[in-house]
Simulated scan of single mutants.
Amino acid sequence: MTETFSAWLREQCEPEWTAVVTHPFATAITTGEADMRRYLEQDFQFVDSFTALLGAAVACADTFEARVPYGQFLGQVATTEEKTYFHRALAALGGSTQAATEPVTAEFRQLMDEVRASQDYPSVAAVLCVAEWSYLGWASRAVEPLPEGFVHREWIGLHEGPEFRAWVDFLRGELDRLGPGLGEAGRRRVLEVFGRAVELERRFFDMALG
């Protein structure tokens, strides 16, 4: 294929991909107008499954060079400001880390858990790439000055900037490296997983918008 595999995956998921990165709720985050309580209550419920998926990437990646970035990012999830952000933000919003699970949240966690259990590295990379690349997509559309309130401002900052861009570039690069060797059936298998993740991202924002 002449284009990169990750670009091909994204193009195959249009117009759903654009619907995610330009979603009204995502846009409202960048302007400080989004009601974040329900959204963050649900997003917090991904932390465990997402962490487990990163662990699976460390385990099933096909090279040592690939395992290292996953391991480094896994450590950051457990120790950096994102871990405390949820607790600070939900406390400020009167939310709860024990909120009832919405159906789309349960479906997304199920996809993460299915892919983790499969130990199929291209599929693991695909779900991680959608989760991170799509968030970079909407966060990168934020313009200065960013919202004054920390709930919106810090959430944007967690998904934009040189380090996060480098992480997304790594995930895309892994898919681009793997794609040519997958064969037609393998590429279609990864596309199915990638497409399911994109659809769930859009539905998750729909849920948050209410």
Rank of each mutant, 00 (worst) to 15 (best):
M1G: 13
T4Y: 01
F5V: 00
S6R: 01
R10D: 01
E11N: 15
E14S: 10
P24S: 02
P24W: 05
A28P: 05
I29A: 01
T30Q: 03
T30W: 08
L40E: 04
E41T: 13
F44C: 07
Q45R: 15
Q45Y: 05
Q45D: 00
S49F: 03
F50H: 12
V58R: 15
V58M: 07
A59Y: 11
C60V: 05
E65Q: 10
R67C: 12
G71F: 10
K83P: 00
L90A: 08
A91C: 05
A91L: 13
G95N: 07
T97K: 05
A99K: 05
T101N: 07
E102I: 08
V104R: 07
A106W: 04
E107M: 08
D113P: 10
A117T: 11
S118N: 05
S118I: 13
D120N: 12
S123W: 08
V124R: 15
A126C: 10
L128C: 12
V130F: 03
A131V: 11
Y135A: 03
L136N: 08
W138S: 02
R141W: 00
E144F: 09
E148S: 14
E148D: 14
V151K: 07
R153A: 09
L158S: 08
H159K: 04
G161H: 08
R165I: 12
A166Q: 09
V168M: 03
D169A: 12
G183C: 03
E184W: 03
A185L: 05
R187C: 09
R187E: 15
F194G: 00
G195L: 00
E199F: 00
R203N: 03
M207K: 01
M207Y: 13
A208T: 11
L209N: 10
